[in-house]
Amino acid sequence: ITTISYRNPVRDIHNSEFRFKENPETVFHKYLSKKFSPSSIFIDNEFNILFIKGDAGKKLMHNEGLFQNNLLKMVSTEIGTVIRNGVR
C-alpha cells in the first residue's frame, strides 16, 4: 500500500497583496474634510462634483430631469457667481 500526501501552501492572509488599497483621491478627500470642514463639496476644475462630505448636499438644488453633477448648475445664479469668483 502506497500513501501519497501533500501539503497545501500556507498563505499569509495579512500579505499586502490582499489588503484593500484606497484610491488616493478618496484618502485626500477624507483628510481635507476632516481637517477643514465637517461638510464640504470637492469639485474638479470644471466645477463637476467629485465628492460630497456631510450634509453639504442638502444645500444643492436638484431640478427635474437629467441629473447634472456640475456645482454651478445646482445652485442659484448669485451663489454660482460667488463660488466661481471664490475658486479663482
Rank of each mutant, 00 (worst) to 15 (best):
E78S: 11
G80K: 06
L71Q: 00
T2H: 14
E22D: 04
G65F: 01
P9V: 13
N8K: 07
I52L: 03
V10K: 09
N23H: 15
S37Q: 11
S76C: 05
P38K: 15
E25W: 05
T3R: 09
S37V: 08
T3W: 15
Q68I: 10
E17D: 08
T3Y: 15
I1W: 10
T2E: 15
L66D: 12
N23S: 14
I1D: 09
F47A: 01
T3S: 11
K34V: 02
Q68K: 15
K30P: 00
N45E: 14
Q68M: 09
I52Y: 09
R84E: 10
S40R: 14
N23D: 15
K34R: 12
F51V: 03
H62K: 07
K34F: 01
H14N: 07
P38A: 09
E22R: 10
V75T: 15
V75R: 13
A56C: 00
K35T: 09
F51H: 12
V87F: 13
F18I: 08
N70Y: 06
K73Q: 04
N23M: 14
M61C: 01
Y31K: 14
N23C: 10
L72I: 12
M74K: 02
I83P: 02
V87Y: 07
R11D: 11
G86N: 04
N45R: 10
R19E: 05
R11H: 08
I79E: 11
I13G: 05
N23Y: 12
S39L: 02
K21E: 12
P38Q: 15
K53G: 01
S37L: 11
V10T: 06
N63H: 11
H29R: 15
L72F: 04
N8T: 07
I4P: 05
V87C: 03
H14G: 01
N8F: 07
R11N: 07
I52M: 10
K21L: 04
D55K: 10
K35H: 05
F51I: 01
D44M: 02
F42D: 02
V87G: 00
F36S: 04
I41W: 01
T81D: 12
R7W: 06
F51C: 08
I4E: 13
R7A: 12
N48I: 04
V10D: 04
G86R: 05
I4K: 12
A56P: 00
E78R: 04
G54I: 15
F18G: 08
T2I: 14
R7P: 02
L60W: 01
I49C: 02
K34G: 09
G86C: 06
H14Y: 05
N8H: 03
H62P: 00
